[in-house]
Amino acid sequence: MTASDSPAPTLLTAWKAAQAVLKTGRIDSPSIDARLLLEAATGATRMDILSDPYRVVTPEQQAQLDAYVERRLRREPVSRILGRKGFWKIMLNVTPDVLSPRPDTETLIDVAVLAHAKNEAFTVADLGTGSGAILLAILAERPAATGVGTDISFEAIAVARDNAAELELDNRATFLRTEWATGFADHSFDLVVSNPPYIPTDDIAGLDPEVREHDPILALDGGPDGLQAYRDLAPEIARVLKPDGVFAVEIGWDQGPQVKALFEAQGFADVKIVKDLGDRDRVVTNGLDPRVNPIPKD
């Protein structure tokens, strides 16, 4: 049998072949990555792959899939290849100018949505917003809330604004170029959240290539000990948060006690460290711990 006589690839065979290549290349989550790349290359949905697995993949679609797989083998993240990433319950555009949102950060959303009931009106600030992921996820969950995201990157602000528009949240989300909370009045917000850079400078070279080579250094580098952003943020959050307000910041897995102490030094009471689903310290907050206070079903 010649190559021209070989059976045409189908959604199922193309998925399995791509998965095998990625697995051989020691790519994490080869099955999920192969499926996402196949969906993008063919226009198929996850349900299509399950319900119509023998749909023929055209030569053009196969060539596109092969190109995607080759990029993934070079350790380019799927989110960078496709320019989109799912986070919480929303889909976001991502570019080289913003951090690609990660599942770990959803712990921050778990904490944030416990601060206010679904239909309660409140104001939220997302300091260092990047793609707008955290702010927009909160607004998607709390329809009476309004918020502002800040970033020092013009490019990041542009991405966040585009995401807000696509999600039809631009009537409740504003994005400003400023450093952290600079320019905001005292006691302006009911909720303040942030996922600041927290990787120690000397540790960046040892990060996975997907992060080291594709996320902006500005969003990773937390200074010599990884804690500089929290030293800057703690007094600013104490200033702009209302007296009965809630803050929540993402942290590195080994930074909980130090960051907790920085916020306690600003006068915050009942500061706690919240763990993520991998049982690692992930968020410092004066709000509720979702493991102790499960998110109510709205």
Rank of each mutant, 00 (worst) to 15 (best):
D28W: 00
N171D: 15
A115L: 05
A44D: 05
D5E: 15
S131F: 00
V94A: 06
I204T: 09
H116V: 08
I109E: 01
I32H: 08
R231I: 12
H214Y: 15
L136H: 04
V69Q: 04
K297A: 14
D215Y: 07
R142P: 07
L139T: 06
D270S: 13
N286Q: 08
M1H: 12
R74Q: 14
A112H: 02
K16F: 11
T24I: 03
Q228I: 12
P235A: 11
R72L: 05
T285C: 07
A125S: 04
R74C: 03
K242P: 05
L227R: 09
G278H: 12
T150N: 05
T95R: 04
R239Y: 04
P257E: 14
N171H: 15
L82K: 03
A173D: 05
A117Q: 14
D276H: 07
T150K: 02
R80H: 07
A133I: 06
P294F: 03
K16Y: 11
D244Q: 14
E141T: 01
P96A: 09
L233A: 05
A17L: 12
L176R: 14
L108V: 04
L22Y: 01
P257Y: 06
D151F: 07
I217D: 01
V246P: 00
D232T: 13
G86E: 14
T42N: 06
D104A: 10
F175H: 05
